[in-house]
Simulated assay, not measured.
Amino acid sequence: MGLLFTVAEVLISLLCIVLLGVLSAIVLEAYRRRHNHAHLEAPPVFEDPNSLKKVQCPSIHDPAEKYISLIVPAYNEEHRLPGAIDETMNYLQQRAAKDKSFSYEVIIVDDGSKDETARVAFNFVKKHTVDNVRVILLGRNHGKGEAIRKGMLHARGELLLMLDADGATKVNDLEKLENQIHVVARQDFHYGDSASNDSSFRISDIPIAAFGSRAHLEEKALATRKWYRNFLMKGFHLVVLLTAGSGIRDTQCGFKMFTRAAARKLFTNVRLKRWCFDVELVFLCKWFGIPMVEISVNWSEIPGSKVNMLSIPNMLWELALMSVGYRTRMWKIHC
């Protein structure tokens, strides 16, 4: 009996040491990220592969020059990127042909790819010009959240859409998000009401966020996924609920749209660099009082997903960082 107590004491001691170590690591990492260095980064340049001239990146703080910007993060996407960008450009060109006031840009952010993603991306710049397609090279892999943040900070659109490089969501679904943003702008901010707005007031001036959602597909997914995957996903959703609160059922869908005013507030503050930056966006929207709408989008499973079961520990790590960072006020939010 004495031996059992000794073993139990040792195990409990080891567990306490491990927990203390993890907690210390979380606090130290949260402290390390207490400053958001977005304002300290040297503005990158876009390279025009046709003229070899450098084009200075604009800033999210500059006035909008395009109606919409599409930000596509890409990591080792040489095979899936061409189909997604071709479909995207076809849609944008067709819409621009019908509506002369419609202007656009696509920003591909290469997140330190080890394959030919950069070459594929620059081929689209050559084909469509640097005014319509731009490439940002991060040099090394930072994570999807950082790639999107970088693209958002240097976009020119009144509306800014993030979408995945795999084409899982059809690009024309952006109209669903776009329409809902205009609905919220009219209802909550009286946008378009000539009696209450001057002619210089634009949709880019109104902070609104629209989240694409696959929540309507959840019942089918639960029926086809393995039980342990469902268990882990339910657990993750519970942690998200405790961390960021309710309001958005599907925080992880990679299809989101923001007005320029919303993107300026959100992406100059976001600190998480990988999968859970979406949850931080929800938290920041609530903190700033930015209206959020969740809209069902068409979505299909595309082979080659970067998310796997090993991503779960990293997600939990980031959620813990976020919780500690904001609850202890180590992470300051800049207005």
Results as ranks from 00 to 15, higher is better:
238 L>C: 03
18 V>I: 15
71 I>S: 03
4 L>M: 03
14 L>K: 05
31 Y>L: 12
217 L>P: 04
210 A>R: 06
53 K>N: 14
302 I>W: 07
23 L>A: 15
93 Q>N: 09
5 F>M: 04
166 D>M: 09
229 R>I: 12
79 H>W: 02
95 R>M: 02
285 C>R: 07
284 L>D: 07
196 S>Y: 11
43 P>F: 08
211 F>W: 14
85 I>E: 09
16 C>E: 09
194 S>R: 15
303 P>S: 07
51 S>K: 13
230 N>Q: 09
221 A>H: 13
244 A>S: 12
10 V>C: 04
57 C>K: 01
187 Q>R: 15
54 K>C: 00
306 K>R: 08
103 S>V: 06
86 D>L: 11
251 T>E: 08
100 K>C: 04
249 R>W: 03
179 N>C: 00
274 R>K: 13
58 P>F: 03
243 T>P: 04
156 R>M: 02
215 A>F: 07
178 E>R: 15
316 L>K: 01
225 R>C: 01
187 Q>V: 14
25 A>K: 15
221 A>S: 14
152 M>V: 15
243 T>R: 05
148 I>M: 14
3 L>W: 11
61 H>G: 02
134 R>D: 02
132 N>V: 00
333 I>C: 04
26 I>K: 06
62 D>I: 01
184 V>M: 11
28 L>C: 08
224 T>F: 01
31 Y>K: 13
199 S>H: 14
334 H>W: 07
309 M>G: 10
44 P>Y: 01
291 P>H: 04
3 L>C: 07
214 R>N: 02
262 A>R: 07
176 K>M: 01
63 P>Q: 04
83 G>Y: 10
275 W>I: 08
196 S>T: 14
284 L>E: 09
5 F>A: 06
61 H>N: 11
42 A>Y: 06
254 G>F: 05
81 L>S: 00
268 T>N: 03
146 E>M: 10
6 T>F: 13
281 L>P: 00
298 N>L: 07
224 T>L: 04
171 V>K: 07
29 E>T: 14
225 R>A: 02
15 L>N: 09
11 L>F: 10
273 K>M: 12
216 H>R: 11
102 F>W: 03
109 V>E: 03
310 L>P: 00
244 A>D: 01
10 V>F: 14
224 T>N: 06
239 V>G: 00
240 V>Y: 07
181 I>D: 00
129 T>V: 09
33 R>P: 00
293 V>D: 05
7 V>F: 14
137 L>C: 00
35 H>F: 12
171 V>R: 06
318 E>C: 02
255 F>N: 03
304 G>S: 08
22 V>Q: 05
245 G>R: 06
209 A>Y: 11
118 A>C: 06
131 D>S: 10
120 V>K: 10
206 I>Q: 02
97 A>Y: 12
211 F>H: 10
331 W>V: 09
100 K>G: 01
242 L>T: 03
289 G>H: 10
254 G>R: 04
85 I>G: 05
